[in-house]
């Protein structure tokens, strides 16, 4: 029960009910689709990156469970103003914290720490990581769909 409260913290429920940056960016220069075949979660991510490699704007659209929507909402908030190098470094730490039981990070994840509740729910980790895989795909401009599989 306490695990459940840990997973569905107020912040998660709020972001699910009214996700931030839930829009297609008309002037985006990076774009990727994400798909979680297990859940059917679908995500389109839009990023605007300037000449200094700074993400100036981020938006997303799609359907998914509360965890994946909240994760995308929180992530797009977080991305704005960060450099690509910062984001990549952060992603590695954060991904490890989400997926590895033994990962001990000294990094302050700030608001994103609410997503760490999924660790107790192995079946749901992919819901939390979908947005992040999609973001990686957009930054690398692979041009193909990011998948959690």
């Amino acid at each position: 029960m306490s695990d459940l409260r840990e997973l569905y913290q107020q912040v998660i429920v709020d972001h699910n009910n009214s996700p931030h940056n839930f829009c297609e960016l008309q002037d985006a220069n990076r774009h990727a689709h994400g798909y979680n075949p297990l859940c059917g979660d679908k995500l389109s991510l839009y990023l605007t990156v300037n000449d200094d490699d700074i993400i100036t704007d981020a938006g997303f659209q799609g359907t998914g469970c509360a965890i994946s929507v909240a994760s995308a909402s929180l992530m797009t908030d977080f991305l704005k103003g960060k450099t690509i190098a910062d984001v990549k470094a952060f992603f590695d730490e954060f991904h490890a914290a989400l997926t590895s039981e033994h990962a001990k990070s000294h990094m302050d994840f700030g608001k994103l720490a609410v997503l760490l509740g999924v660790k107790e729910f192995p079946a749901r980790v992919k819901c939390a990581t979908l947005a992040w895989h999609t973001m990686q795909s957009a930054l690398e401009n692979k041009g193909r769909e990011a998948s959690t599989e």
Partner: peptide, 22 residues
Amino acid sequence: GVHAHDIGTILDCEGVAIRTGH
């Protein structure tokens, strides 16, 4: 409007096993 996977996880915490997905 609650996604099936959120329902599945919450029900599981209550000891009720159902299928969620496509």
